[in-house]
Amino acid sequence: MPDISLRDVSFSYPGGPRVLDQVSLEVEDGTFLAVVGPSGCGKSTLLRLISGLSLPEEGTVSIGGAPVTGPAPGRSIVFQQGGLFPWLTARGNVAFALRKAKPGLSRAQAAEQAEAALVRVGLKDALSRYPGELSGGMAQRVAIARALSVGGQVLLLDEPFGALDPRNRQALQQLLLELWQAEGSTVVMVTHDIDEAILLSDRIAFFRPGGVRLILPVRASRPRDPAEFLTSADCCATRKRLIGLFYQYGEAVGETL
């Protein structure tokens, strides 16, 4: 029952202002929440709190009713950038995480599964390359492959597709949806791309400085065909609403406009 629940959560980094102020948020089991909003309003912090990498100053974060006190198995996270171990190859990075998540796996099995995961994100030719030898987009795909292959009940993604070219981005969005539906995990994804948020998620949380401004449901049925869905009236209305909010809270909307 990995319902994610935040109650009156406040957080600030040492010496900084409050990033989150009395935030409450519920994410139902098996749903896909997209988080959008201007930079610096606590979206990444939200993911750190859910993953247990940071703990709230006030309030509680709980998953399936149990309070989060630190990182735990069953939760994977993809950072905006970095996070690969530079001393391991692409295959080694994925296999290392796999063996930690599934202790029963032998070395050979882990390597095999890691290779399969990397092939799925289109990195067949980069299996034995070190992160320092990969482009930003390729390294990001390794990180995504690592998180997706480990799986788990809760998948946290911090602008995972930001560094990718449009073709790879679309392919990985589809891959993410497939895995999410197959595993029934709960996904929280931070993104700057409004269309991406609308296309992928069940609900969109708009963050303003200090916390959640509002939550918009995306009601369209799945599977959603990108070309058709993104021009539908429903989608246009949601997009208009979000763009209005971005202007209201003082930031240009970025690459989707």
């Binding site: 990182p71 996070g83 690969l84 171990f85 530079p86």
Partner: peptide, 14 residues
């Protein structure tokens, strides 16, 4: 050390 590397390691519950 790159904090992202340490975060990745912590998430793996080492």
């Amino acid at each position: 050390l790159d904090p992202h590397i340490l975060d990745s390691a912590r998430v793996l519950c080492l």
